[in-house]
Amino acid sequence: MKELLETIVRALVDNPDEISVNEVEGEKSLILELRVAPGDMGKVIGKQGRIAKAIRTVMKAAAVKENKRVVVEIIQ
C-alpha cells in the first residue's frame, strides 16, 4: 500500500526525493501519512482537492483486494 502511494505521488511531484510515507497500522484500517516538499503540496491536493480525491479513490480500490480500509492523510 505504501509503495503504491509512493508510486502515484512520485509521478506527480517535482521533488520525488522529498516524499515520505509513514504507515500507521490499525486493526481494520491503515493510515498512510504522506509528506511532500512544501512546493509540491498543490500537486498532490489540486484544485478543490481533486488530485487528493483521485489518489484516495485509487488507494481505496487497492485496499479492496486486501480487505482493509485505507486512509490517506496529507501532512503539512
Binding site: R50, K53, T57, A61
Partner: peptide, 21 residues
C-alpha cells in the same frame, strides 16, 4: 472490475491522474 470501481469512479480517478502525469 476493481479498476472500474463503483460507477466508474476508480476509472475516472486513474484517467485523471494519468492525464496529470
Amino acid at each position: 472490475g476493481i479498476i472500474i470501481g463503483r460507477r466508474g469512479e476508480t476509472l475516472e480517478a486513474l484517467q485523471f491522474l494519468s492525464c496529470l502525469v
